[in-house]
Computed example of a mutant assay.
Amino acid sequence: MDTADQSPSPDRGDLPFATLFPPHLPGDPWRPTARTAALLHTSLSLLADEIDDDIRTHGDRPVEAGAEGSWSVLHRLPRSTWDGGTPWRRNMAAAVDDLIADLERGRLPFPRCPAKHHGLGLALADAEATLDEDPDLVADEAAHLPADPRVRDRWRPCP
């Protein structure tokens, strides 16, 4: 995992998403808008917290079919991961933290391993669900960030 040069994540409100992800210029490669990056950062941060909650609550106990309601998030991973113990779960949390660090450095959160792939997929699904369920909350959270007139206001996980 990418752990070099990581520092604790600052509060989302302290991150300069408008600077890290400036509006697109003609000919620029695709990158998320500041608003998309902020929403994804929030989603990844919540996911990391939920993984930590599952570790504290369940430790090494495997996820069991039918008991998914007692888990915060690890039950949403493929069943082949349900027997993963605490060290594996901590690695999953670290993978999500790496994706958060990518955004905090102004980089795309590129999944470089299966854990990051699953973490990013969960975070994208959660971000889209949040927008669908409470678009006003998302709009309020992003109000301080500039809108990109070339991008629709609707969340688009894929360009």
Rank of each mutant, 00 (worst) to 15 (best):
M1R: 04
Q6A: 00
S7L: 03
P10F: 02
D11H: 08
D11W: 02
P16K: 02
A18R: 10
L20I: 08
L25W: 06
W30E: 15
R31T: 10
R31S: 13
P32T: 03
T33F: 05
R35S: 08
T36S: 07
T36I: 07
L39G: 09
L39T: 09
L40I: 06
T42G: 11
T42Y: 02
T42I: 03
D52M: 01
D52S: 06
D54A: 04
T57Y: 02
H58D: 05
G59C: 05
D60P: 07
R61M: 07
P62Q: 01
P62S: 01
G69N: 08
S70Y: 01
S72V: 11
L74D: 02
R76T: 13
L77Q: 13
P78Q: 03
T81S: 12
W82H: 15
R89D: 09
M92Q: 15
A95F: 07
V96H: 04
D98P: 00
A101T: 10
E104F: 04
L108I: 13
P109F: 02
A115N: 06
A115R: 12
K116H: 03
H118G: 04
H118A: 12
H118Q: 13
G119T: 00
G119W: 00
G121V: 01
G121S: 14
L122F: 03
L122I: 14
D126E: 10
E128R: 13
T130W: 09
D134G: 09
P135A: 01
P135I: 07
D136I: 04
L137F: 14
A143T: 12
L145K: 13
A147R: 14
D148M: 08
D148K: 09
C158V: 15
C158S: 15
